[in-house]
């Protein structure tokens, strides 16, 4: 039996990557039900590219009873789209961040739980080889007890709706906190208990160009304390200029009682300079295990089991983001869970 997949929006182009991955899965694994998008023209364009149908109404698409839907709408629309899926009995894989507030994330988790449909948060980093090997080595005690570490998820200001907080919910702190927070929770098997955030606004040229008169956070260094006492920092800044060799990074340095691990998740790369690239450009050749997060979504739906990366994982990461903004406003650390 093929797993039937619907796509709710291509506002975030990760949907395209996952759709392409699904197309490479063995024949008969996945069947596309169709695409709905608040931008109908984009739905039509993507439907043509992916060999499926565009729908003018989300409810009409969900009424076709797909097994699951991939939500890649603008961040603030995640909640509405997920709730529609829950109501239609359709499983959800939602692009990160799961939501732009803890309240929204909680509503999504509850709606899916009540409807008995799986809710996944798209945290693909967990499926890359270096992350899987790091987890194996931590679990095997190779670096002893982890005391703390320094992490970064740098990026380049992505433009379009990302620069509009009414659609994105926020800037770099919203966009680039959650991957690493999820990785650390997964690697350590513990929750964060306190957050301090140093946040900068309109610090980088690309942001200034993109936001016009708006103010948007584009620099952030978070200090994170975990249950059990480990201490971490996370730089989520959109600090890569256009001239840099790549979009950004995901790096984790962990200091343990018996060793130190330094992971640069996308370091499997070539460096290319050409008249086409105009600069030294990285070409990453890292791969994802078992079709990554997209594969996990398909297996979850086919096997009728809970996903390994859940809505609650998305909720916990959203909580750290909200705490970070609150901390930046107060100029003080903020305790979790948020009251």
């Amino acid at each position: 039996m093929s797993v039937k997949i619907a796509f709710l929006s291509f506002a975030h182009m990760h949907a395209n990557g996952w759709a392409r991955q699904m197309l490479t899965m063995p024949k008969g694994t996945v069947e596309f039900t169709g695409i709905w998008d608040r931008d109908l023209a984009r739905a039509k364009k993507m439907a043509k590219a992916l060999g499926t149908k565009a729908f003018a109404s989300r409810e009409a698409l969900l009424a076709k009873k797909p097994h699951g839907a991939v939500i890649c709408s603008e961040n603030v629309n995640h909640r509405e789209d997920a709730l529609a899926c829950a109501q239609a009995g359709v499983g959800v894989m939602c692009e990160k961040p799961l939501a732009t507030s803890v309240a929204d994330a909680r509503a999504m988790v509850e709606a899916c739980r009540n409807a008995g449909v799986p809710l996944m948060t798209a945290f693909p980093c967990r499926f890359y080889g270096p992350a899987l090997r790091l987890k194996e080595q931590i679990d095997a005690g190779e670096i002893g007890e982890v005391l703390g570490g320094v992490t970064t998820n740098h990026g380049r200001q992505p433009g379009s709706w990302f620069a509009n907080p009414k659609l994105s919910g926020g800037g770099a702190v919203t966009d680039h906190t959650v991957h690493i927070v999820d990785l650390l929770r997964w690697l350590m098997g513990r929750e964060f208990k306190r957050v301090y955030a140093a946040v900068g606004y309109n610090r980088f040229k690309l942001t200034r160009k993109a936001v016009g008169k708006r103010v948007l956070d584009d620099a952030g260094v978070l200090s994170l304390e975990m249950d059990g006492g480990a201490v971490f920092s996370l730089d989520c800044s959109w600090s890569r200029p256009e001239e840099y060799s790549t979009w950004g990074d995901a790096k984790v340095e962990l200091v343990g009682t018996k060793g130190v691990a330094r992971m640069d998740l996308f370091r499997q790369r070539l460096l290319l300079a050409s008249s086409g690239t105009k600069r030294l450009a990285e070409r990453c050749w890292a791969d994802e295990k078992d079709f990554g997060i997209a594969g996990e979504f398909i297996r979850t739906l086919r096997e009728g089991r809970p996903p390994s990366v859940s809505g609650v994982d998305g909720l916990r990461a959203t909580e750290v983001v909200e705490a970070a903004y609150r901390s930046a406003q107060l100029g003080e650390p903020v305790a979790l869970p948020l009251s």
Binding site: L147, A198, G200, A219
Partner: peptide, 12 residues
């Protein structure tokens, strides 16, 4: 608005 982050260690 400048932010500086320092990692200092005797644990490496």
């Amino acid at each position: 608005g400048i932010i500086a982050h320092l990692q200092s260690s005797w644990s490496h």
